[in-house]
Amino acid sequence: MYGRFRIQYKGFNMADLKLNLNGLKLKNPVMTASGTFGYGLEFQDFVDLNKLGAFIVKGTTINQREGNPYPRMSETPSGMLNAVGLQNKGVDYFIENIYPLLKDINSNVIVNVSGATISDYIATAEKINDLNHIPAIELNISCPNVKEGGMAFGTNVCSAAEVVAAVRKVYNKHLMVKLSPNVTDIRAIATAVETAGADSVSLINTLMGMAVNVKTRKPVLSTVTGGLSGACVKPVALRMVWQVASVVKIPVVGLGGIMNAEDALEFLMAGANAIQIGTANFIDPTITMKVIEGINAYLDENGFTSVKEIVGIINQA
């Protein structure tokens, strides 16, 4: 009955898209996923960065990384494999050259932090902790494309907890932890990083996959395996978001194959407090703006006054 009552007010009020993600204030639940949106600046012809809930700049490491050799990408049905391998110019380059260009943007600029060792993670997080206009980091313990680190931390309960606890000691702003789907039970990892001090979790990173070129009889990717993303991973991502949201108390940021507003709504209804758009940025650079508008339109048309009302709604009796 309450729902019907609100429908009468349809059109009078714009739905409230604002949310508070455990202290991180977002003007809407739409973020961009690390590694798919560069430093944001690459998309300025298409997107008003100030309108995003947050954007997550590409994976940053303590030292410069050249990444993996070409070929690093293979198209798949409804998706793509990548093996970029965290190519970036290092945290000091980010601080000196990129941060000044981003600091006045009226959105949450979040830095995705990766490392090969716990001390790498700590050193990078400490440096970013000093940047006033970066309200959060996303700790990447789930990159499948670097041998020595990343996913190795995120696929083991003990090491995941260890790296999160270590970074927690030196990083005093919002600590989001990005989880790997390449595990037997993602709930166990999510619970472990929550206990270790994460403020939120984001999931899923890419699913490990591979492709073979039958003409050359060789793997397509230089690294043999890579990370699968795009529309094809959505059902898996959605299932994991639902599982994690049902066991953790901290906010959950859902991502994996979101191509439009309806996909985003599915994640919110399954329990995600906010969402990230990744690979879809490659196909339609304006997609984030369309998803924000689409979520807003859905809420208005269905009589919801706030996006918070649909989070986890599938679990309601």
């Binding site: 798919t36 560069g38 998309f43 990444g67 050799p69 793509m80 990548n82 970029v84 190519q87 490659f282």
Partner: peptide
């Protein structure tokens, strides 16, 4: 004409090796 995804210098898939490190073919 390396394989590429975004064309905007964001995905870093299309890189070629240069004397100054990997560079995006697209941008």
């Amino acid at each position: 004409e390396n394989m590429m995804a975004c064309g905007l210098g964001a995905c870093l898939c299309c890189v070629t090796e240069t004397k100054e490190g990997n560079k995006c073919v697209c941008t």
